[in-house]
């Protein structure tokens, strides 16, 4: 009985709780959907054929996670997962700016994905004991997959940053580029305090961010001769969670809906 009292059942949510939960799920779903999209663009262009195959698995996992989150929203809102994925306009999307940026070079791709996955791991950790049980279940499953993604990118990151010459230069540039979008990634929207106080997350946003920053600063230290980094979170410059996006997202969406727009009444 006490367990049931502790958990938040979909049918017992207040209107406010539902809205906050949907806002959070939308951030997660859109992040995973768009990074999965960007990953899938790499197929056939990766530095090795082996990486093409590996990166495609990661892309499929990310889109699969997006489907999971969209389906949770579907249960709460009655809008189909497909409509959530394909029919919303750019300003209705809550993904971070980081994941919508164009792919750039291999260094940017690795750094972006590695840092994104570091953050995603922290988010998942904060959800495995969530009072919203469907979310806790999914988070446990996803953590298993993300574990391998993290190893994959950790490996690339370590190898490329330890190199000299062109690789190192590119990695350093990529770090600086990605860093500009970190606040936007780490922003959790308007209701981050409520997510914690209602037990949807078991860690506060401050705690999560400070965990991320200490991992991040470690990475810079590991790159030996690179300067020390100290980041302070600034919510002011965050945009993605509020639906403010770059033109890159609009062009992704335009491309994505080409078939659907061909005949809106059709089943495919």
């Amino acid at each position: 009985m006490s367990h049931e009292m502790n958990s938040l059942a979909p049918e017992l949510l207040t209107g406010q709780q539902r809205m906050i939960l949907v806002d959070w799920l939308t951030q997660l779903a859109d992040d995973e959907f768009i990074i999965g999209h960007r990953d899938s663009e790499w197929l056939g262009l990766c530095p090795t054929v082996e990486e093409d195959v590996a990166f495609s698995s990661i892309a499929q996992d990310e889109v699969g996670h997006a489907v999971f989150y969209y389906e949770l929203i579907q249960e709460l809102e009655g809008v189909s997962a497909d409509d959530l994925a394909f029919q919303r306009l750019a300003h209705e999307r809550k993904n971070s700016l980081l994941v919508e940026r164009e792919n750039g070079d291999w260094a940017y791709t690795i750094v972006r994905h590695y840092l994104y996955d570091l953050w995603d791991q922290i988010r998942l950790d904060a959800m495995v004991e969530s009072r919203y049980v469907p979310l806790a279940h999914g988070a446990k499953k996803m953590k298993r997959e993300e574990y391998y993604h993290l190893i994959h990118f950790q490996h690339w990151f370590a190898r490329l940053t330890k190199c000299g010459g062109e690789a190192r230069e590119r990695m350093k540039n990529a770090m600086e580029l990605v860093e500009q979008d970190l606040d936007d990634l780490l922003d959790m929207g308007l209701y981050e305090t409520d997510l914690f106080s209602w037990g949807i997350l078991t860690k506060s946003s401050e705690e999560m961010r400070s965990e991320f920053y200490s991992r991040y600063e470690e990475l810079w230290r590991d790159m030996s001769d690179l300067s020390e980094r100290k980041l302070i979170f600034s919510k002011q410059i965050s945009k993605g969670r509020m639906g403010q996006h770059s033109p890159a997202l609009a062009s992704v969406l335009e491309n994505m809906t080409e078939v659907i727009r061909f005949d809106p009444n059709a089943q495919w």
Binding site: L43, D52, Q60, V252, M256, E258
Partner: peptide
């Protein structure tokens, strides 16, 4: 086929096509 992954009209088709195209690359390898 890869050009059609971003344009696949629903989530199920998108995931199926991604897996298929990955297989082709795997065969190449």
């Amino acid at each position: 086929e890869k050009e059609w992954v971003p344009k696949a009209p629903n989530l199920r088709r998108k995931l199926a096509l991604m897996a298929k195209v990955q297989d082709e690359m795997g065969h190449g390898q």
